[in-house]
Design a protein around this nucleic acid. Structure first.
Lengths: 126, 126
DNA sequence: CTTGACCTTGACACCGGCGTCAGGGTTTAC
DNA sequence: GTAAACCCTGACGCCGGTGTCAAGGTCAAG
């Protein structure tokens, strides 16, 4: 299939696909007229990339997952390098969450300090 | 005082101060030679800006706080507009925290799905 | 033959808060 | 008089993942 079809099926823009290629994540064959030609494996790779991006991974993070798929594994996450990325990402997420919780507390404190009584109604969340 | 001294006392770069001015947050008088001239009020404003930035506010967010200080209030947060920003920021933080928690769960799930048993050792945090 | 839907590469724009360099002028100290 | 330490404006770079426009080539239907 060509880039437009892959884009539609994967739910991404053609621009994104060309960018992934530029970043070395997907490699398209070229037909005689220079058009990119993709197969089902490429679709799977793109799907993997998208699912990683949506949970906060970068394209660099996605590399080992793509390599893992290319190596024939059923899922991109079942290789040591991918697992390492998972772990690092979990740690980064935990750190980020801690930071945000601290900030939230700080902001709430500043609010109640600057405007005592303004902080009513601040129970329902968390 | 001139920009270098203000920068040192406030713990920011001169570049940052010029940027704040460009964004309309601080307004320096100019001495005969064109140098920026600041006073203690400016120092307080910059301190306010820094404390807001470090808890995740943007410069745009900081505007009402600066206006509040300029209006003579003791703290930048004790004006209605500032309180509104506080509230919006709290809501945004809560939303962001929810998103990150969901992502963390998602990543943990993908990890244990891709590599059953790899997710041991995942108890100590949170 | 033309229209239109597809494809190509290349490159600028965006967001935020600066860092950093270029290419100057001013003031103070020795 | 000259070095050093200030100050000025203007402008590009960064980061990540695209959106979007420019200026083309290709191919099938009518």
């Amino acid at each position: 299939m060509r880039i437009g079809e892959l884009a539609r099926r994967a739910g991404v823009s053609t621009r994104a696909l060309r960018y992934y290629e530029q970043q070395g994540l997907i490699a398209a064959r070229r037909s005689a007229n220079g058009y990119r030609e993709y197969d089902e494996d490429d679709l799977r790779i793109v799907a993997e990339i998208r699912s990683l991006l949506t949970v906060g991974f970068t394209l660099a993070d996605a590399r080992p997952f793509v390599a893992c798929l290319r190596a024939g594994h059923a899922t991109g996450g079942s290789c040591p390098d991918s697992v390492a990325v998972y772990r690092r990402k979990l740690a980064a997420l935990d750190e980020e969450i801690r930071t945000l919780l601290a900030r939230r507390a700080e902001v709430a404190a500043q609010l109640s300090a600057a405007c005592p009584g303004c902080a009513r109604k601040e129970q329902g969340e968390k």
